[in-house]
Computed example of a mutant assay.
Amino acid sequence: MAKARESTVAVADQVRSSLTTLAPRENIYNLPNLLTVSRLVAAPVTAYLVVHDQHAWALALFAYAGITDLVDGWIARKWKLQTVAGSVIDPAADKALMIILTVTLAVKGALPLYLATLILGRDASLLAAAAYYRYASLPAPKTFTRYWDFSLPSAEVHPTTVSKYNTFLQLVLIGSTLALPVVPAASLHLSTVGLHQGMQYYQWLVAGTTAWSGLSYAFLKDAVTIMGADEELKAKQGARGRAIIGVTFGSVVAAAVWAACYVDEEGSKTIARDEQAASKS
C-alpha cells in the first residue's frame, strides 16, 4: 500500500514537472489581432464596393484599412500584445488588400493591364522563390508535414530598401485610384485631363519601382538568409533561388511590356477617340 502511494506521488510529481516545461499558449484574442482580422475581411468587401461603383464607401473602407494598419501595430507594441499569429496575419491582410484591389481595379479598367501584371507577377515570383527556399532549407527528412512546420529552421527574407518604398507607393496608387471617382478634379485645382496625366506619370513611377524591387531580389545576395551550416550548399541554394526570381519575374516584365505596347496602348487610343467624339457632340 505504501509502495503504491509512493508510486502515485512520484507519477504526480513527474506530471507536474512536465507541465511546467510546456510553452504557455498565446492570447490571440486581443484588440490588435481583432483589428488585423477586420482588415483581412475589409479587402473583399472593398472590392465588392468597387465592382458595384460604390466608390465613396470603397475609399472609406480602404482608409479604415490604412489607419488600422498603423493603429494595431502601435497598440501591440505599446501594451506588449505582439503574438506569432499577429505577425503572420498582419502582412497577409496587407497583401490580400493589395492583390484583391489590384485585380478588381484592373478588371474595371481603372488600372492598366501592364501595371497590374507587374504588381501581381512580382508577388507570384517571390512566392515561387519562397517555396523553393523553404524546401531547400528544410532539414531532412523533407516531408509534407515538416514543410509546413515553421518551428523548423528555414530561410529568412530581408525586404530590400526599394521594396519598402515600392510597397508604400503601391498603397498610395491604390488609394489615389479609388479616390479619382470621388474627388472632383476642380477641387484639386486641376483639369480632368491634367489629373489623368498626373496619374499616368505616377503609374509609370510605380511600374519602375515594382520592376526594380522584384529584380533586386534576383541580384542582391543578402536579401535572403538561408539557415544551415554548409556554406557551399547555402551559396548554391541562394543562387538557385535568385535564378528562379530572375527567370519568372523577367518573364513577367516582358509580358508587362507587351501589354503596355499592344493592349493598354489600344485602350488609350479608344478612350481618346471617345473623348474627342464627346467634346464635338
Score class of each variant (00 low, 15 high):
Arg16Thr: 12
Glu265Trp: 13
Phe62Ala: 13
Leu118Asn: 10
Ala155Asn: 02
Ser279Thr: 11
Ser176His: 01
Ala23Lys: 13
Phe168Val: 15
Gln276Trp: 08
Ala10Val: 02
Tyr64Thr: 09
Val37Cys: 08
Val45Asp: 10
Ala42Trp: 01
Ala136Tyr: 06
Gly121Met: 02
Leu59Val: 10
Gly267Leu: 00
Ile89Gln: 05
Ala130Gln: 10
Gly250Pro: 07
Ala124His: 06
Thr104Met: 04
Asp69Asn: 09
Arg240Tyr: 13
Val50Asn: 12
Ala185Asn: 09
Arg77Glu: 03
Glu231Asn: 01
Gln54Lys: 11
Thr8Trp: 12
Lys234His: 06
Asp90His: 03
Lys80Phe: 11
Asp90Pro: 01
Ala43Trp: 08
Ala229Val: 03
Tyr147Ile: 04
Lys80Gln: 15
Arg77Ser: 05
Asp264Ile: 05
Val172Arg: 03
Thr192Tyr: 13
Ala223Leu: 08
Val252Asn: 05
Gly66Tyr: 01
Ala131Tyr: 10
Val71Pro: 10
Leu40Ala: 14
Arg146His: 06
Met227Phe: 09
Ala207Asp: 02
Ser137Asn: 02
Arg240His: 13
Ala218Arg: 09
Ile174Asp: 04
Leu115Lys: 03
Leu190Thr: 08
Leu205Pro: 08
Cys261Asp: 01
His52Gln: 11
Thr210Gln: 03
Ala85Lys: 07
Val51Pro: 03
Ser251Arg: 00
Lys280Cys: 01
Thr145Lys: 12
Pro112Asp: 05
Gly175Arg: 13
Val51Met: 12
Leu105Thr: 01
Ala130Ile: 15
Ala85Trp: 14
Gly214Asp: 07
Leu49Phe: 09
Tyr114Leu: 08
Gln237Tyr: 05
His158Ser: 15
Arg273Ile: 05
